[in-house]
Design a binder for these strands. Structure first.
Length: 491
RNA sequence: GCCGGUGUAGCUUAAUGGUAAAGCAGAGCCCUCAUAAAGCUCGGAAGGAGGUUCAAUUCCUCCCAUCGGCACCA
């Protein structure tokens, strides 16, 4: 990845849009966007794809419960996800819907046909315990002690069998072990990779990849050549990563973007991405994604977010109240990338006041005030011109971003902010009478703030822009004009 | 039940087979360019029991606690 000619294709997971987006979606969007922006700023042509998993049975059930037409229901919810992204300043270059009949349907049917041509799809009878309330099959360990599902206690499950198409997952076991253990398909963090490998140690069973029309309620992508069955949602949902960049409908575009460089996903869907998805692609003889970044879940005050407890956090409200960049910052800094993290208003305010107001905001304010009086500063007055640390800083930063340790990247940047505050105290520019020396000191500090601004740009793009408006490090000179506080303290 | 991880200061985390580091919170000092901001100083920590070793927070065993994974919800 040393030249600027390469492309970078990254995706969020494809949420099923049976409800409004929550804070966890915001986390995933922001993490993905930060990585995408990093690569874009490195000069790579970058595409960030998201989408909506429209074909899940839960969508159909939720639409029925809401008394709405399914398409209308999912379109309404999908719009909320797109809106959340926009408010988070997350730039989706593509938003591929699973219900897109013009692009996604043919793409998924093509994938099916390729797997079929490889001899990996066959018909078999599936038998399982079916809950009429959930309209879902359950395995016995998913049930309570009475053998009933948790959603509908007191209701007996029925033993139902139906004919489905199956995919020969078992055939790809060895290939998958090799791909994952060699990092050909890299999985970060390492704990997730180990989990996948431990799953792959056990014999893989073939998986059902279709549903009868009745069970699918005539919703979803039709199975090619069999109008009695629809694709099981995972078979087509994963394929959104391909259908969004032309697979099955624009070969040139597809060739340009596929394979994906990174899929960013939540820990709950690791297996689908680390096992099923590469197996489908191997079967279809298509290139595989290069990496999976797996993030965790957000708790609220240490508890699982749940509607029952009533502790859900509405990301829209957070953004409305505190602004986009503070929310981005909290999610990226406080939640360890790749692990679970906690949200509380108390922690939010602590982070905001400590890091943003007293840290970054205050540093910019003090330098802007000191520098405004002597602006502009010619870069010739700032010596030494070369800053040997810059390279070390960039390397340390890159290592963290590339390793999907975004929280550590920010921690690292804040270490630099702390150093600058200390250095300014030591240099005492407010007491310096030698004009040339003062220009040097302030110019130097501005230059370093320019570096900080550059480093935070993927994480807080708007803040980076605002800093550059106050302290603009140009080719020839630095222009300083104090502006409003970046982050007014919260009481 | 099986497999794996984790347990370090009040809180969140770090490094390390040889004096345990940082941020936040607390106490004190100090500066005044800045958002009653910054800086400095201080106090305070290895779940329990064994073992290997000259030396264990680090490696091993067991116990306790806790978290995660274990295929048709997505």
């Amino acid at each position: 990845m040393e030249n600027g000619q390469e492309k970078f294709y990254i995706t969020t997971a494809i949420p099923y849009v049976n409800a409004k987006p929550h804070l966890g979606h915001a986390l995933e969007f922001v993490q993905t966007d930060a990585v995408a922006r990093y690569h874009r700023l490195q000069g790579r042509e970058t595409a960030l794809l998201s989408g909506s998993d429209d074909n899940a049975l839960k969508n159909v059930q939720a639409a029925e419960a809401a008394g709405m037409d399914v398409q209308q229901f999912i379109d309404t919810n999908a719009a909320l996800f797109a809106d959340l992204a926009q408010r988070l300043n997350v730039q989706f270059d593509r938003f591929q819907k699973g219900s897109d009949r013009a692009h996604h349907y043919p793409a998924s049917q093509k994938l099916w046909e390729l797997c079929d041509a490889a001899g990996d799809i066959y018909k078999k009878s599936y038998e399982g315990l079916y809950c009429l309330g959930c309209e879902t099959f359950y395995t016995s360990d998913e049930l309570n002690e009475n053998g009933e599902c948790f959603e509908h206690p007191g209701r007996k499950l029925e033993l139902v069998s139906e004919e489905n198409y199956f995919f020969r997952l078992s055939k790809y076991q060895d290939a998958l072990i090799e791909l994952v253990s060699s990092d050909t398909l890299a999985i970060l963090p390492k704990s997730r990779k180990n989990e996948v490998l431990s799953f792959l140690k056990q014999p893989l069973r073939d998986i059902s990849i279709s549903r009868t029309n009745a069970r699918a309620k005539n919703w979803g992508v039709p199975v090619p050549g069999d109008d009695t069955q629809r694709m099981y949602v995972w078979f087509d949902a994963l394929n959104i990563y391909q259908s969004g960049v032309g697979f099955g409908w624009d070969e040139q575009q597809y060739q340009k973007w596929w394979p994906a460089d990174v899929h960013v996903i939540g820990k709950g869907i690791t297996r689908f991405h680390a096992v099923y998805w590469p197996a489908f692609l191997l079967s279809a003889k298509l290139p595989l994604p290069k990496a999976l970044y797996v993030h965790g879940y957000i708790t609220v005050d240490g508890q699982k977010m749940s509607k029952m407890i009533g502790n859900t956090i509405d990301p829209f409200e957070m953004i409305e109240k505190y602004g986009t960049d503070p929310v981005r910052y909290y999610l990226l800094r406080e939640i360890p990338s790749g692990e679970d993290g906690d949200f509380s208003y108390e922690k939010f305010v602590t982070r905001y006041n400590g890091d943003l107001a007293n840290g970054l905001g205050n540093l910019v304010a003090r330098v802007a005030t000191l520098g405004e009086k002597i602006s502009p500063i010619s870069l010739k007055d700032v010596y030494p011109k070369e800053q040997p640390q810059t390279r070390l800083i960039d390397e340390a930063y890159e290592k963290r971003v590339m390793g999907f340790r975004l929280n550590e990247a920010l921690e690292f940047i804040w270490g630099i902010i702390g150093e600058r505050d200390k250095e300014i105290n030591d240099r005492k520019p407010w007491a310096v009478s030698d004009e040339a020396y003062l220009r040097h000191i302030i110019g130097d500090e501005c230059h370093r703030i320019g570096t900080i601004s550059r480093l935070i740009a993927p994480f807080m793009p708007d803040t980076a822009r605002k800093i550059n408006e106050q302290i603009n490090v140009g080719e020839m000179e630095i222009v300083i004009k104090k502006g409003p506080n970046l982050f007014p303290r919260l009481s």
